[in-house]
């Protein structure tokens, strides 16, 4: 019952926003495509979501899939680097004192700043995009893992001590499971960031994907497709976060 009520309320909210959009598009900003115009101009992308008509003219889900694949690779890179780094910094006060300021400085740098550097380093758009995604989305994983390692209760560490666990077993049997919930919170935030970065990365590199498509349609003055892309980005990001959220609660309950 409550679920139904919440769903109804979100529908009302969404309708209000679409109404506002319609109002703005007919009054203040005539360049903004109205919801109806957006639908009629975009429906071929939505109704045949996996069609491929040309390099930059493909169904919206196909585009989203390209982006997701790229995000998956960048995200994987981010957690493969970020998790061990977090463990290292969490375990060593010396290292964390050394690198904490560096991390705090690297963390707020925008993907738009990293991308040109990636292009210089790799001379190709794909690795540059991955480099940017990984570098931008890594930090929540590093910081949360570090935090997780630091907040392992002394009791669990005592167990490892009195059982005389080898360093490897101490890691797999105690440190890792105790840190897992924190790590996952980091992964969730990192994935969110990776999805944010993908659009910028694709825009600048012009690779096929939701971001690349958005930029191309802006240059071709087809504004309704920009709105289509924006909506897609939002919905996919929302779905990703929900999935990670479910995985996270499963993990905490276990």
């Amino acid at each position: 019952m409550n679920l139904l009520k919440n769903f109804a309320l979100s529908l009302v909210g969404a309708t209000l926003v679409v109404g506002l959009w319609a109002l703005v598009s007919t009054t203040i900003s005539k360049d903004l495509p109205s919801p109806i115009k957006t639908w009629t101009e975009s429906k071929v992308y939505i109704l045949q979501p996996f069609d491929k008509r040309g390099e930059m003219d493909q169904g919206i889900l196909r585009m989203a899939a390209y982006s997701l694949y790229r995000v998956a690779k960048g995200f994987l890179l981010a957690i493969l680097i970020g998790t061990p780094l977090g463990f290292l910094l969490g375990n060593s006060l010396l290292l964390s004192k050394m690198f904490d300021p560096v991390i705090q400085i690297l963390r707020p740098i925008s993907p738009l700043a990293w991308l040109p550097l990636g292009l210089i380093l790799f001379r190709q758009s794909e690795p540059a995009a991955l480099f940017t995604i990984a570098l931008c989305s890594m930090w929540p994983t590093v910081i949360n893992t570090m935090q997780g390692v630091r907040s392992i209760p002394q009791d669990y560490l005592n167990v490892a001590t009195v059982l005389r666990l080898s360093p490897w077993r101490r890691f797999t049997k105690v440190l890792l499971p105790a840190t897992l919930p924190y790590m996952f919170t980091g992964y969730r935030l990192s994935l969110g960031l990776a999805w944010l970065v993908i659009v910028a990365a694709e825009m600048l590199t012009g690779t096929p994907g939701v971001g690349g498509f958005l930029w191309q349609e802006y240059n071709s003055l087809i504004y309704s497709h920009i709105l289509l892309c924006i909506l897609t980005i939002g919905l996919v990001g929302f779905a990703l976060d929900r999935l990670m959220g479910i995985a996270e609660t499963r993990l905490r309950a276990a």
Partner: peptide
């Protein structure tokens, strides 16, 4: 030099590992 060999301890607050079953806790030891 550290906790002695062939010794065990029962902690005041049990200190079981919460992500392991009772059996797994004992098996680890």
């Amino acid at each position: 030099n550290g906790f002695p060999h062939r010794a065990s301890i029962v902690f005041q607050n049990y200190s079981l590992l919460p992500w392991l079953s009772s059996l797994e806790n004992v098996i680890l030891a």
